[in-house]
Amino acid sequence: MKNKILYLVFTFVTGFYFSQQNAVEINGWTNVNTFKCVNNAFRNSTSIYSFMGNELPNVVLKVDDFDCRNRMMTSDFRKTLNSDKYPNLTIKFLNFSKGNGNRFNAVVEVKMMNVVKKYNIEFSQYKNSLVGIKRLKFSDFNIVPPKKMGGMVYVKDELDLTFSLGIKD
């Protein structure tokens, strides 16, 4: 019951924050702090996505467009994802279906650093957007989380991928 209440609160807050816009955030944790990296180019796009028929979205994001609001953190993020060699992160919808109420279920393929993983993600509709969140791991993509200061500060393996897609009414 507690998890359902937390999910509803998260959905409402996230839905309000991401309402009527495109957005992709990667949220993570270190042993001393949290971080959030936002893809500003995607946030500023005016793209509207359709989930009707066979034409499901395929979102290609440039890793260098992510900003962690801290120059060193942004540089480390891009270096960790090897943006020089693998400049794009791709989110491709393979399947999409209506669930209960304003919820939808999707099978999404995430490609990062030439490693492809499929995830089941639940989306909620809020105004003119679909909002979803999925907990991933660096290790899912064969990435070793970065360490600083001889390992005294380290990034935890888990990440939350949160995204919102503007949709047609």
Score class of each variant (00 low, 15 high):
33 N>R: 05
33 N>F: 02
33 N>H: 06
35 F>D: 04
35 F>T: 02
37 C>L: 08
38 V>M: 08
38 V>L: 14
38 V>P: 00
39 N>Q: 08
39 N>E: 09
40 N>C: 00
40 N>F: 06
40 N>E: 13
41 A>K: 14
41 A>N: 10
41 A>D: 12
42 F>P: 05
43 R>L: 15
43 R>W: 02
44 N>D: 14
45 S>W: 04
46 T>M: 05
46 T>N: 14
46 T>W: 00
47 S>Y: 07
47 S>C: 02
48 I>A: 06
48 I>R: 11
49 Y>T: 04
49 Y>P: 06
49 Y>F: 15
49 Y>M: 05
50 S>Q: 12
52 M>Q: 14
52 M>T: 14
53 G>F: 08
53 G>R: 08
54 N>K: 12
55 E>S: 14
55 E>Q: 12
55 E>V: 11
55 E>F: 01
58 N>H: 11
60 V>I: 15
61 L>A: 07
61 L>S: 05
61 L>F: 06
62 K>G: 00
62 K>N: 14
62 K>T: 03
63 V>M: 10
64 D>Q: 11
65 D>M: 01
68 C>Q: 07
69 R>V: 03
69 R>Q: 13
69 R>W: 02
70 N>R: 09
70 N>W: 11
71 R>I: 09
72 M>K: 13
72 M>V: 14
72 M>L: 15
74 T>P: 03
75 S>H: 11
77 F>W: 02
77 F>N: 01
78 R>K: 15
78 R>Y: 02
79 K>F: 07
80 T>A: 11
81 L>R: 01
81 L>D: 01
81 L>Y: 04
82 N>Q: 13
83 S>L: 01
83 S>H: 10
84 D>Q: 13
84 D>I: 02
84 D>H: 09
85 K>M: 06
85 K>N: 11
87 P>W: 03
88 N>P: 00
89 L>T: 10
90 T>F: 00
91 I>Q: 00
91 I>E: 02
91 I>L: 11
91 I>P: 04
91 I>S: 06
93 F>L: 08
95 N>K: 14
96 F>C: 07
97 S>F: 04
98 K>Y: 02
98 K>A: 13
98 K>Q: 14
99 G>S: 15
100 N>F: 11
100 N>I: 12
101 G>E: 10
101 G>H: 06
101 G>C: 02
102 N>T: 10
102 N>R: 12
103 R>N: 14
103 R>L: 12
103 R>T: 14
107 V>M: 10
107 V>G: 00
107 V>L: 10
108 V>F: 03
109 E>M: 09
109 E>Y: 00
112 M>L: 15
112 M>A: 13
113 M>W: 00
